[in-house]
Design a binder for these strands. Sequence first.
DNA 1: ATTTTAGTTGAGAATGAGTCGCAATTAAAA
DNA 2: TTTTAATTGCGACTCATTCTCAACTAAAAT
Lengths: 144, 144
Amino acid sequence: MITKESIFESHLKTKGLKLTPQRKAILEEVFASHEHFDIEELFANLRNKGKRISRATIYRTLPLLVESNLIKEAFRYQDKVSYEHIFGHGHHDHLLCIKCGRIIEFMDEKIEELQEAVCKKYGFKPTEHRLGIKGYCKKCISHE
Amino acid sequence: MITKESIFESHLKTKGLKLTPQRKAILEEVFASHEHFDIEELFANLRNKGKRISRATIYRTLPLLVESNLIKEAFRYQDKVSYEHIFGHGHHDHLLCIKCGRIIEFMDEKIEELQEAVCKKYGFKPTEHRLGIKGYCKKCISHE
DNA sequence: ATTTTAGTTGAGAATGAGTCGCAATTAAAA
DNA sequence: TTTTAATTGCGACTCATTCTCAACTAAAAT
Ligand SMILES: [Mn+2]
Ligand SMILES: [Mn+2]
Ligand SMILES: [Zn+2]
Ligand SMILES: [Zn+2]
């Protein structure tokens, strides 16, 4: 069975890297919730669970998880990079409320297809795309 | 006639700010080429034209140009923020080659419409959106 | 099971983009 | 002109991220 652990492990192996307790804990924490997270939050969450892992290790581990296709950078908001895990989750894009910070995820198959068509038109081979729409969410429009 | 100068000037006036030689020079430089640019490049370009304007002033001025809707942040690539002027130019999105750094601009009316539809569906009032597709450009696919 | 090897960790120093405080300067209103 | 309030450049500062290095440890080799 393919699990996030086995994926991470084999990616590490491929690169001649080791599976340490710290790396395991980070992997686990990243999948412990379905929220988007930034590095500081991840650091704090680990602390709250008694795992004293240094920021340096977290900064070193996240790129490994990205390379493993287990997580990715989801968006940036106010200079913070937010990540999300992607293993086991479908692709989607984001609406970002600039008033209250709410994040709405959406997925539009037609938009995806049109993006493919654009790439084809330019002979471009896409590896990743990001569509972020900023504005005011339903709740915030009235108080705008 | 509405010019970029008049737009900037009236925006400054609205905020009780002054039109200084430095601000004029930055505005001019930003429209001197149609390339995307980052702050360091802008700083260097001004230097090369004999304008010794401090980075602090550039950092302080760009947000004013953004507020004036004369420029906007176009995308980020390798931690550098790239801007582009928008006055006199239609909206578009970007393909970014992660091998050679080439930028391809595109605009797809249908994608724009579908984005609107998504926003409507969620009662979201968009103020800005950004679609960036990373991958390999035509030239780079072969050497990938 | 023990040894060996090479990668890993945490702490703090270093870096670098961006911001800030301030004294001297200046645009532009009066 | 004079006066007022904003602006500038400089260097100090902040804060996120990266780096250095000595002590440590996973995992391969024996
Ligand atoms: Mn998401
Ligand atoms: Mn562009
Ligand atoms: Zn909101
Ligand atoms: Zn290319």
